[in-house]
Simulated assay, not measured.
Amino acid sequence: MEAERQAIEAVVRDYVEGMVRADATLLRSAFHPDSRIVGHFGPDLQWLSPEAFIAGLQARGPVVAEGEAPVWRLESLDLTGDTALAKVTDVYAGLDFIDYLSLLKIDGRWRIVHKLFHLHG
Protein backbone atom coordinates (compact mmCIF):
# COMPACT_ATOMS: atom_id res chain seq x y z
CA MET A 1 0.00 0.00 0.00
CA GLU A 2 2.82 2.44 0.84
CA ALA A 3 4.50 1.76 -2.51
CA GLU A 4 1.23 2.58 -4.30
CA ARG A 5 0.88 5.85 -2.38
CA GLN A 6 4.43 6.81 -3.26
CA ALA A 7 3.80 6.01 -6.93
CA ILE A 8 0.65 8.17 -6.93
CA GLU A 9 2.46 11.02 -5.16
CA ALA A 10 5.16 10.85 -7.86
CA VAL A 11 2.50 11.27 -10.57
CA VAL A 12 0.98 14.22 -8.68
CA ARG A 13 4.44 15.79 -8.30
CA ASP A 14 5.08 15.34 -12.05
CA TYR A 15 1.73 16.99 -12.76
CA VAL A 16 2.48 20.03 -10.55
CA GLU A 17 6.09 20.34 -11.73
CA GLY A 18 5.00 19.96 -15.34
CA MET A 19 2.30 22.58 -14.94
CA VAL A 20 4.41 25.32 -13.34
CA ARG A 21 7.37 24.63 -15.63
CA ALA A 22 5.26 24.19 -18.79
CA ASP A 23 6.97 20.82 -19.24
CA ALA A 24 5.04 18.82 -21.83
CA THR A 25 7.02 15.62 -21.16
CA LEU A 26 6.11 15.54 -17.46
CA LEU A 27 2.48 16.38 -18.18
CA ARG A 28 2.11 13.73 -20.88
CA SER A 29 3.59 11.24 -18.45
CA ALA A 30 1.10 12.19 -15.71
CA PHE A 31 -2.09 12.37 -17.81
CA HIS A 32 -3.73 9.59 -19.76
CA PRO A 33 -4.24 10.83 -23.36
CA ASP A 34 -8.03 10.41 -23.06
CA SER A 35 -8.28 12.31 -19.76
CA ARG A 36 -10.08 15.64 -19.34
CA ILE A 37 -9.33 18.82 -17.43
CA VAL A 38 -12.55 20.52 -16.31
CA GLY A 39 -13.43 23.60 -14.29
CA HIS A 40 -14.25 27.29 -14.39
CA PHE A 41 -11.43 29.72 -15.02
CA GLY A 42 -13.11 33.01 -14.24
CA PRO A 43 -16.51 32.94 -15.94
CA ASP A 44 -15.34 30.50 -18.61
CA LEU A 45 -15.92 26.76 -18.40
CA GLN A 46 -12.87 24.84 -19.55
CA TRP A 47 -13.29 21.29 -20.76
CA LEU A 48 -9.86 20.43 -22.12
CA SER A 49 -7.92 17.51 -23.48
CA PRO A 50 -4.42 17.05 -22.10
CA GLU A 51 -2.95 18.42 -25.34
CA ALA A 52 -5.07 21.59 -25.17
CA PHE A 53 -4.11 22.01 -21.50
CA ILE A 54 -0.41 21.55 -22.31
CA ALA A 55 -0.61 23.97 -25.24
CA GLY A 56 -2.10 26.66 -22.97
CA LEU A 57 0.62 26.16 -20.37
CA GLN A 58 3.36 26.25 -22.99
CA ALA A 59 1.93 29.45 -24.49
CA ARG A 60 2.27 31.07 -21.06
CA GLY A 61 5.64 29.50 -20.29
CA PRO A 62 7.10 28.59 -16.90
CA VAL A 63 5.63 30.44 -13.91
CA VAL A 64 8.44 29.60 -11.47
CA ALA A 65 12.08 30.54 -11.71
CA GLU A 66 14.70 27.89 -12.46
CA GLY A 67 15.39 26.04 -9.21
CA GLU A 68 12.29 27.45 -7.48
CA ALA A 69 10.01 24.83 -5.92
CA PRO A 70 6.32 24.91 -6.79
CA VAL A 71 3.83 25.53 -3.99
CA TRP A 72 1.51 22.57 -3.54
CA ARG A 73 0.25 20.06 -1.01
CA LEU A 74 -1.44 16.69 -1.25
CA GLU A 75 -4.40 17.31 1.06
CA SER A 76 -5.87 13.83 0.87
CA LEU A 77 -5.52 10.57 -0.99
CA ASP A 78 -8.20 7.91 -1.19
CA LEU A 79 -6.88 4.67 -2.67
CA THR A 80 -9.02 1.65 -3.51
CA GLY A 81 -7.53 -1.11 -5.63
CA ASP A 82 -6.49 0.34 -8.96
CA THR A 83 -8.34 3.65 -8.43
CA ALA A 84 -7.38 6.74 -6.47
CA LEU A 85 -8.67 10.23 -5.78
CA ALA A 86 -6.19 12.93 -4.78
CA LYS A 87 -7.13 16.37 -3.47
CA VAL A 88 -4.30 18.81 -4.18
CA THR A 89 -3.93 22.48 -3.34
CA ASP A 90 -1.49 24.36 -5.52
CA VAL A 91 -0.48 27.82 -6.67
CA TYR A 92 -0.14 28.57 -10.37
CA ALA A 93 0.97 32.06 -11.45
CA GLY A 94 -0.15 33.50 -8.12
CA LEU A 95 -3.59 31.86 -8.33
CA ASP A 96 -4.77 29.36 -5.70
CA PHE A 97 -6.35 26.14 -6.96
CA ILE A 98 -7.92 23.05 -5.52
CA ASP A 99 -7.55 20.09 -7.87
CA TYR A 100 -9.36 16.79 -7.59
CA LEU A 101 -7.35 14.25 -9.55
CA SER A 102 -8.85 10.88 -10.41
CA LEU A 103 -6.14 8.33 -11.09
CA LEU A 104 -6.28 4.83 -12.51
CA LYS A 105 -3.56 2.20 -12.57
CA ILE A 106 -3.27 1.16 -16.21
CA ASP A 107 -0.79 -1.49 -17.33
CA GLY A 108 0.98 -1.22 -13.98
CA ARG A 109 1.30 2.57 -14.07
CA TRP A 110 -0.74 5.30 -12.34
CA ARG A 111 -2.14 8.00 -14.65
CA ILE A 112 -4.48 10.95 -14.14
CA VAL A 113 -7.72 10.23 -15.98
CA HIS A 114 -9.62 13.32 -14.83
CA LYS A 115 -8.77 16.69 -13.30
CA LEU A 116 -11.56 18.76 -11.79
CA PHE A 117 -10.32 22.15 -10.61
CA HIS A 118 -11.58 25.08 -8.58
CA LEU A 119 -9.94 28.51 -8.66
CA HIS A 120 -10.31 30.35 -5.37
CA GLY A 121 -8.87 33.27 -3.44
Rank of each mutant, 00 (worst) to 15 (best):
residue 90 D to T: 12
residue 57 L to R: 08
residue 36 R to Y: 06
residue 41 F to H: 14
residue 34 D to W: 05
residue 22 A to E: 08
residue 57 L to K: 06
residue 77 L to D: 06
residue 66 E to I: 06
residue 32 H to F: 09
residue 37 I to M: 09
residue 93 A to K: 08
residue 75 E to D: 15
residue 23 D to Q: 04
residue 88 V to Y: 00
residue 72 W to T: 00
residue 5 R to P: 02
residue 5 R to A: 07
residue 11 V to N: 01
residue 100 Y to I: 09
residue 73 R to T: 13
residue 4 E to Q: 15
residue 73 R to E: 14
residue 34 D to V: 09
residue 96 D to N: 11
residue 116 L to F: 11
residue 116 L to V: 15
residue 46 Q to M: 14
residue 89 T to A: 07
residue 18 G to Q: 05
residue 96 D to I: 03
residue 112 I to Q: 04
residue 21 R to V: 04
residue 13 R to C: 00
residue 45 L to M: 14
residue 72 W to C: 00
residue 20 V to D: 00
residue 76 S to E: 11
residue 43 P to E: 11
residue 106 I to V: 15
residue 120 H to I: 09
residue 100 Y to E: 05
residue 66 E to Q: 13
residue 13 R to W: 00
residue 83 T to R: 14
residue 98 I to V: 14
residue 94 G to E: 02
residue 33 P to A: 10
residue 78 D to F: 03
residue 102 S to G: 04
residue 81 G to A: 08
residue 66 E to C: 01
residue 50 P to F: 08
residue 23 D to V: 01
residue 101 L to W: 01
residue 11 V to G: 03
residue 108 G to H: 11
residue 21 R to A: 05
residue 82 D to W: 00
residue 29 S to V: 02
residue 7 A to V: 03
residue 86 A to R: 00
residue 35 S to N: 10
residue 110 W to R: 04
residue 118 H to M: 09
residue 87 K to G: 03
residue 60 R to D: 00
residue 82 D to I: 04
residue 89 T to E: 10
residue 65 A to T: 10
residue 49 S to G: 09
residue 32 H to R: 12
residue 69 A to H: 07
residue 50 P to E: 10
residue 78 D to H: 08
residue 44 D to V: 15
residue 60 R to A: 13
residue 110 W to A: 06
residue 91 V to N: 07
residue 41 F to D: 11
residue 46 Q to Y: 13
residue 63 V to M: 00
residue 110 W to P: 06
residue 104 L to M: 15
residue 56 G to I: 05
residue 96 D to F: 11
residue 77 L to G: 02
residue 53 F to A: 00
residue 15 Y to P: 07
residue 48 L to C: 05
residue 40 H to C: 07
residue 8 I to Y: 00
residue 20 V to I: 02
residue 57 L to I: 07
residue 4 E to A: 15
residue 104 L to T: 12
residue 12 V to D: 02
residue 118 H to E: 09
residue 103 L to A: 01
residue 20 V to L: 02
residue 99 D to A: 08
residue 11 V to Y: 01
residue 41 F to Y: 15
residue 83 T to P: 00
residue 61 G to Q: 10
residue 80 T to E: 12
residue 109 R to Y: 06
residue 2 E to N: 15
residue 30 A to W: 01
residue 50 P to H: 09
residue 19 M to L: 15
residue 4 E to N: 11
residue 10 A to K: 12
residue 96 D to S: 11
residue 119 L to A: 10
residue 72 W to G: 00
residue 56 G to H: 02
residue 49 S to E: 11
residue 91 V to E: 13
residue 78 D to A: 10
residue 80 T to C: 08
residue 49 S to F: 06
residue 4 E to H: 10
residue 94 G to P: 03
residue 13 R to F: 00
residue 61 G to Y: 08
residue 39 G to S: 09
residue 48 L to H: 10
residue 63 V to R: 10
residue 48 L to M: 14
residue 62 P to L: 02
residue 58 Q to D: 02
residue 2 E to L: 14
residue 97 F to N: 07
residue 73 R to A: 13
residue 69 A to C: 05
residue 90 D to F: 05
residue 63 V to P: 01
residue 45 L to Y: 07
residue 3 A to K: 14
residue 28 R to N: 13
residue 63 V to L: 01
residue 84 A to M: 09
residue 31 F to V: 03
residue 98 I to D: 05
residue 16 V to Q: 04
residue 69 A to K: 14
residue 103 L to V: 04
residue 14 D to K: 13
residue 73 R to H: 08
residue 44 D to C: 04
residue 35 S to G: 13
residue 69 A to R: 14
